[in-house]
């Protein structure tokens, strides 16, 4: 059977999918990880989990994606849901103004429970339903800039920008980690004899990608 322990990745990143119920989180996930889309998919109960491995600059990145039911937001799933998450895809439905209005609440949720350095991508999903659009792309863009988020309009149905959205998040995380690693090396060199500083930096960079991010 295929239950093998694999270490065929260089980095392990946990990404959470959040947003109101019905915005298409699970379909974004299935499109990204399995290239599937289901029009009448069952609503998520609790949390669902998927993984996908991608390559960035010759490194293998394994993304572990946690997808919660929108309804669960403040209740059954505890804050541990965000533990170890280094990226978030915050999804709204461009045909439903309410889901866009609620983005603010989701951001607050992230600020309260997730790591402050979490990389956030806001995705306006269902861009295929342009004729039903309720939120203009410009509104999304303006909001994203104001909040310092990445932004894309996606369509899980048409497979538009889904891959790109995840890749952007993962890339950004990867670069942050790399920068940290470099800074750590730098710090280690300059700090030199101070043993304390060295040990902290090492754990932050080299071990960081595999231990801190893999939610073990």
């Amino acid at each position: 059977m295929a239950h093998r322990v694999d270490h065929e990745y260089d980095y392990l990143f946990k990404i959470v999918l959040i947003g109101d119920s019905g915005v298409g989180k699970s379909n974004i996930l299935s499109r990204f990880t399995r290239n599937e889309f289901c029009l009448d998919s069952k609503s998520t109960i609790g949390v669902e989990f998927a993984t996908k491995t991608i390559q960035i600059e010759g490194k293998t990145i394994k993304a572990q994606i946690w997808d919660t039911a929108g309804q669960e937001r403040y209740r059954a799933i505890t804050s541990a849901y965000y533990r170890g998450a280094v990226g978030a895809l915050l999804v709204y439905d461009i045909t439903k103004q309410k889901t866009f209005d609620n983005v603010q609440r989701w951001l607050r949720e992230l600020r309260d429970h997730a790591d402050s350095n979490i990389v956030i991508m806001m995705a306006g999903n269902k861009s295929d339903l342009n004729h039903l659009r309720a939120v203009s792309e410009n509104d999304g863009q303006v909001f994203a800039e104001k909040e310092g988020l990445s932004f894309l309009e996606t369509s899980a149905l048409e497979s538009l920008n889904v891959e790109k959205a995840f890749q952007t998040v993962l890339m950004e995380i990867y670069h942050i980690i790399n920068k940290k690693a470099l800074a750590a090396k730098e710090a280690a060199r300059t700090a030199g004899p101070i043993a304390q500083g060295t040990s902290i930096d090492v754990s932050d960079s080299a071990g960081g990608s595999k231990t801190a991010c893999c939610s073990r």
Partner: peptide, 14 residues
């Protein structure tokens, strides 16, 4: 055994 073989919460939950 399948669960014990997992190393991360995500794979285990999957």
């Amino acid at each position: 055994s399948s669960l014990l073989a997992t190393e991360t919460a995500t794979t285990c939950l999957q």
